Computed example of a mutant assay.
Amino acid sequence: MLEAIVHGFILAFGLILPLGVQNVFVFNQGAIQPQFLRALPVIITASICDTLLISLAVFGVSVAVLEFYWLKIFLILGGICFLIYMGMVSWRSKPSIEDQRSDSLSTKKQIVFALSVSLLNPHAILDTIGVIGTSSLHYAGGEKIAFAAACILVSWIWFTGLGIMGRLIGNLDKSGGILIILNKVSAIVMWGTAIYIGSTLISL
């Protein structure tokens, strides 16, 4: 049981750590919302989406879906377009924290955008299915549940921590200089990921 928990924790942390559109969005909302509580909708939405994806991956539903070749192609092509577009959005992001706070997203818009960056990002879906779903095959019964719970717990801790970190950075860096650098690095990573995903089409 302990082995499954540790495995799930380390694996999930390794997958969620790299810069990506979901992480950057949660971080940015923590930074630009007038109060931390105003960033909770995006934190909770992103965490629930990850909980759903991990649950589907571990219990085999999503693996069955990817048996359809055309669906996998669709996800890859959609992922490339999505990452290119979101990279452009990140690259062109506004520089001023104060300006963004005066024009911060409403709760509804936060939730809708968080849903899109969480569930319409095929790269994240394929990673969850291919890595977490495959790794869960080593476990059964209570150990599989413990493995899934550990992965899910990492998501909730990580997104909450990102929101808090974003809030701290936003209060310290009113000019938004740190966020500008983070967004541009994230954009480059997303474009690089789009190229990598595109290269996988060759092997299909």
Rank of each mutant, 00 (worst) to 15 (best):
D99Q: 09
S102K: 07
S106Q: 08
K109A: 14
Q110W: 08
I111G: 08
S116L: 01
V117M: 06
L119V: 10
L119M: 12
L120P: 06
A124T: 04
A124S: 08
A124P: 06
L126Q: 08
D127Q: 03
T128S: 12
I129Q: 05
G130F: 03
G130T: 03
V131K: 02
I132M: 04
T134N: 00
T134H: 00
S135P: 00
H138L: 12
A140D: 10
G141C: 14
G141A: 15
K144N: 13
A146S: 15
A146V: 11
A149W: 10
C151F: 10
V154D: 03
W156K: 07
I157H: 08
W158N: 02
F159W: 00
F159E: 00
T160R: 02
G163W: 02
I164Q: 05
M165V: 02
G166E: 04
G170F: 00
G170D: 01
D173F: 02
S175C: 04
G176D: 03
L179K: 14
L182N: 07
N183P: 09
K184I: 08
K184E: 08
V185E: 10
S186T: 06
I188A: 15
M190H: 06
W191V: 09
W191A: 05
G192A: 04
A194V: 09
A194K: 05
I195F: 12
Y196S: 11
Y196I: 15
I197P: 04
T200C: 12
T200F: 14
